Simulated scan of single mutants.
Amino acid sequence: MKKVTFYLMMMVLSLSILPTQMMAKEKTPTAITNDSKEVPAEVKVLLNRLEEIKTMDKSELKSSEKKALRKEVRAINAELRSTGNGVYLSVGAIIIVILLLILLL
């Protein structure tokens, strides 16, 4: 019985995920307009800081300085995610939800 549920779960997962190449098509470049949303100033500041960090020459830095930069990048990314007003689900959470749905239905 366990093998049947395992095979059923694998079949559903393999059929629900479509390869991206099948869906790929050429997109025409579109001009970005600022009519829909304006980027807040604090987000622009954070994005500019991330660009500065990316363009830095990190080969001359000490390991403690690199560690501090990594912490800063993580903090900036966390802050940017929190301002996104979106719902984020991790892969583990999605798998747990799918397993619960399979078990309950």
Rank of each mutant, 00 (worst) to 15 (best):
M1A: 13
M1S: 14
K3A: 14
K3M: 01
K3E: 15
V4E: 15
V4N: 12
T5L: 11
F6Y: 11
Y7I: 11
Y7H: 15
L8C: 15
L8K: 12
M9T: 13
M9I: 12
M10R: 05
M11P: 01
V12H: 00
V12M: 10
L13F: 05
L13P: 13
S14T: 14
L15Y: 13
L15K: 09
L15V: 07
L18S: 12
L18A: 03
P19V: 11
P19Y: 04
P19D: 14
P19A: 10
M22N: 08
A24T: 08
A24Y: 02
K25N: 10
K25T: 04
K25I: 14
K27E: 05
K27W: 11
T28N: 10
P29T: 01
T30Y: 03
T30R: 11
T30G: 03
I32K: 03
I32G: 04
T33G: 13
T33N: 10
T33L: 13
N34V: 04
D35K: 01
D35Q: 07
D35Y: 07
D35W: 01
D35F: 03
S36Q: 12
K37P: 07
P40S: 03
P40W: 06
V43I: 15
K44F: 01
V45S: 15
V45K: 14
L46I: 09
L47I: 08
L47Q: 08
L47T: 06
L47V: 06
N48Q: 15
L50D: 00
L50C: 03
E51V: 11
I53T: 02
K54Q: 00
K54T: 05
T55S: 09
T55A: 12
T55C: 10
T55Q: 15
M56F: 04
M56T: 02
M56S: 08
D57L: 10
S59Q: 15
S59L: 14
S59Y: 12
E60A: 03
E60C: 07
E60N: 14
K62E: 08
K62T: 03
S63G: 03
S64W: 02
S64T: 09
S64N: 15
E65C: 00
A68V: 03
L69D: 01
R70K: 12
K71E: 15
K71F: 05
E72I: 00
V73S: 01
V73L: 00
A75F: 02
I76F: 00
I76Y: 00
N77P: 06
A78R: 08
E79L: 01
E79Y: 00
L80F: 00
R81G: 06
R81L: 04
T83C: 10
T83Q: 06
G84Y: 08
G84E: 02
G84N: 13
G86E: 03
V87Y: 11
Y88W: 10
L89Y: 13
L89M: 08
L89F: 14
L89R: 15
S90H: 03
S90C: 05
S90A: 01
V91Y: 06
V91T: 13
G92R: 11
G92T: 06
A93L: 13
A93Q: 15
I94L: 07
I94C: 02
I94M: 07
I96V: 01
V97R: 09
V97M: 13
V97C: 07
I98E: 12
I98S: 06
L99V: 04
L100M: 11
L100W: 05
L100V: 12
L100A: 08
I102V: 14
L104V: 15
L104G: 03
L105V: 01
L105H: 04
